[in-house]
Design a protein around this nucleic acid. Structure first.
Lengths: 260, 260
DNA sequence: CGTCCACTTGACAATCGTCAATAGCAGTGG
DNA sequence: CCACTGCTATTGACGATTGTCAAGTGGACG
């Protein structure tokens, strides 16, 4: 916060939101928000915001702020009101749906550049938990929705991103419905590698910030099966299990197992 | 076709498309296209087009036409170019993805009001086959894409529909990943009932234009398991199997099995 | 009437889940 | 410093849901 005038503007935009947010899971453990600096953004080129001209960033900066969450924080919960939408700038999240009897399905892992709240739904359709410390760029849902109507290119970027997510979701249906445990693991590892490649560049080292249980709940398997398959792949020299991730030794073999 | 002038316009818009379409699966068995009459549309209120004012329909009419396909026709195939997007006005389609080894995943069934090509991808991500005779309202993809940029409300409708599809896809992930065979069947039947309710009004009679194999490929099950589960539900008086569908006897029981 | 295809049913097999025990590791506090 | 706790991961034994294979029925259609 650099001047009184700027602070006043900031409070005007966020005052009420901060207050109402106090009762919500999303702010339980969040560090206080800071004003945006889109020109310094770490994920320029990956996010929907990139569809705006640099001179339009101030529109975003007026309705957005950055927030930081520690690992294990819950950003929001399935079924709760969704006053905000968020753009992830760093860290990793688990997005999951819970059945009444406790069974869980992880519907995705969100990485930098991913957008939470594409649907602009007034309530959250899944729970979002931080797997690592996370930074997000957060906007009031209604403010962002208004901005979409003023900036068709931003709306187009949202449509493209929603369509891309839909395509990924349909690919994941194939994995869940028609692949064996071994193929599921392979396609998960290849998928994670490809996603990190967009962010950090290609590498055979794939960080896995989620637990085996999370992976199982993503692939429709149990922890034990995930563990057994990964151990087997390591025994067969297809991967090496390292702290916090894996190293891919035989990428062609994995791609063959995962192929669509 | 009502006048020479109109015919000339029609040919201008579709001449090249018809020609190039001759080599494509989508026109193999299609009846010749007719100009649109949006005001007579059977699915007004259900489709994205409804976001336009009636006086804007002529814009759609200029770039669209209606087409009819017989049952079992392939509208388009996974991997092929996608020169058109389509709005379904009647009938039912199976949308499926094929693995190299022949395993198949049905990613959805399309009903009147559904839009094919939400992603505006230049190639098709899945195959679409007619389960019944089908009528669609078809637009050139690029023409439709241009129209989106001119009509933000239409783009907003597309975004909403894409977001809704994404939510459904995530719900289906839960079904595929974390539900038993019996629960899968129940949630499929309840889902179909709800979708028909939007179109024809609520009813305990649920038409099933797809085969047991299609249902299995949608739910990640084999034909045999689908058949066994449906027979069992019929034996337990939860449903009655009738020609071309089922009648739901114990909806509360089904909803309990299907509950999210 | 015969063929084809969808559906059903049964017997058996296997993948994957369940249950249980143990190891490893990080954080906590005496 | 080390015991203690709790969580994650691994591994084994066993079991069950679901898949595989096979046979047979019935309806649609030529």
């Amino acid at each position: 916060m650099e001047s009184l005038a700027e602070k006043a503007l900031f409070d005007t935009v966020f005052g009420r939101l901060e207050t109402s947010a106090k009762t919500m899971a999303c702010s339980q453990k969040a560090a206080p928000g800071l004003a945006l600096e889109c020109n310094e953004c770490e994920i320029k080129g990956l996010s929907v915001c990139d569809s705006l001209e640099p001179e339009e960033f101030e529109l975003l900066e007026q309705i957005g702020r950055t927030l930081a969450f520690p690992a294990k924080a819950t950003l929001f919960e399935q079924g709760r009101d969704a006053p905000f939408v968020s753009n992830i700038t760093s860290g990793a999240l688990r997005l999951s749906k819970l059945l009444p009897d406790g069974r869980r399905q992880v519907v995705g892992f969100a990485l930098p550049g991913d957008f939470l709240g594409l649907a602009l739904d007034p309530t959250h359709m899944f729970t979002a938990d931080a797997l690592t410390p996370v930074k997000v760029c957060q906007f009031s849902r209604l403010g962002f929705s208004d901005l979409l109507d003023k900036k068709p290119r931003l709306m187009r970027a949202m449509l493209n991103m929603a369509a891309h997510e839909l395509t990924l979701a349909q690919d994941q249906m194939v994995v869940l419905g028609r692949r064996t445990a071994e193929e599921k693991i392979a396609s998960f590892l290849i998928g994670m590698r490809n996603r990190y490649a967009r962010i950090h560049g290609a590498s055979v080292h794939v960080p896995l910030p989620m637990t085996r249980l999370d992976i199982g709940d993503y692939l429709g398997l149990t922890v034990e099966t995930v563990s057994r398959m990964m151990t087997r792949m390591a025994r067969e020299k297809v991967i090496v299990i390292v702290p916090d991730g894996v190293r891919l030794l035989d990428v062609p073999r994995l791609e063959q197992l995962a192929e669509m």
